[in-house]
């Protein structure tokens, strides 16, 4: 059968080689399905370290993978829904990531050394996503925490509208430091709109117009910094950044005023 080509990607198995303990796949021009099949097969065969070279927008890398001691390195640009529904592995992107990073992720770690797109961490319920640079719209929507599962997202650059909308649990951090948009505000509008759980920390200040009416804004206090500092320490260690510089500005705490924002909206018939 001739090789099928979908949107420029070829439906062929990626070239594979081993480098020390790592299984290396060349993703150049390979369709996502074959790439992810190869990754899953390698994980099933016991690989603990997988490297994906020449990634160029392949979707769903790491999606649904359940493994504890697995590391996936992506060199290039990871496509949409990176680490969606993922439970356990560590995914590190040396490049940019596109939309939907950590979509409904259960646990594990994603480190992006570049920028990331929209809807990062949607419905995320555990694990960590660390982004060095900017992120897009609708980041951290409806993150939620349950008992020991507390999702944490740290974005080093700036974010667009709807950051932390509907947030129900976990921690969202926005630093506004490593950004392509020095003249823009640190976040767009509708920050924390509909938020009913969890906490958002922003380095520096936010303006009242940016925030949803369901949140209260205050200076981060000692207890906040005690919770935040170890997270930032881990973030800086993952991305080779200077913790002292990150901590050199005060942080703003944004938290919901109610766990039941719509509790009084209804009259029962």
């Amino acid at each position: 059968m001739p090789i099928q080509v979908i949107e420029g990607y070829r439906q062929v198995e990626p070239a594979r080689r081993t480098e020390g303990d790592a299984v290396v796949f060349d993703a150049n021009g390979v369709y996502y399905q074959q790439l992810n099949d190869a990754i899953r097969a390698a994980v099933e065969a016991g690989a603990k370290r997988i490297v994906v070279e020449n990634a160029n927008g392949q979707r769903y890398i790491g999606a649904g993978l359940q493994a504890k001691d697995l590391t996936i390195e992506v060199r290039g640009t990871a496509g949409n829904d990176l680490a969606a529904f993922m439970d356990g592995p560590k995914v590190e992107v040396f490049g940019n990531a596109q939309d939907g990073v950590g979509n409904t992720m259960a646990s594990g770690t994603v480190v992006v050394h570049g920028d990331a797109g929209d809807v990062l961490g949607y419905g995320m319920r555990g694990g960590r996503v660390f982004v060095r640079g900017d992120v897009g719209y609708r980041v951290g929507i409806h993150m939620k925490a349950y008992e020991g599962l507390v999702p944490i997202v740290v974005c080093g650059g700036k974010a667009r509208d709807f950051f932390g909308e509907y947030m129900a649990g976990g921690m969202l951090v926005l630093l506004g430091m490593n950004t392509q948009f020095p003249d823009d505000p640190v976040a767009g509008g509708f920050l924390g709109t509909g938020m009913h759980g969890g906490v958002i920390y922003v380095r520096g200040a936010v303006e009242p117009w940016q925030c949803g009416k369901e949140v209260g804004v205050s200076e981060a206090e000692e207890a906040d910094m005690a919770a935040l500092t170890p997270v930032l320490d881990e973030y800086c260690a993952s991305l080779g950044l200077d913790l002292a510089e990150v901590l050199s500005e005060p942080f703003t705490r944004i938290a919901p005023v109610s766990h039941r924002p719509y509790g009084k909206l209804y009259a029962y018939l």
């Binding site: 319920r125 939620k144 129900a168 649990g169 759980g197 039941r260």
Partner: peptide
């Protein structure tokens, strides 16, 4: 997988 007593929105 959400806390007790919180609205599930």
């Amino acid at each position: 997988m959400i806390p007790q007593g919180t609205d599930a929105i």
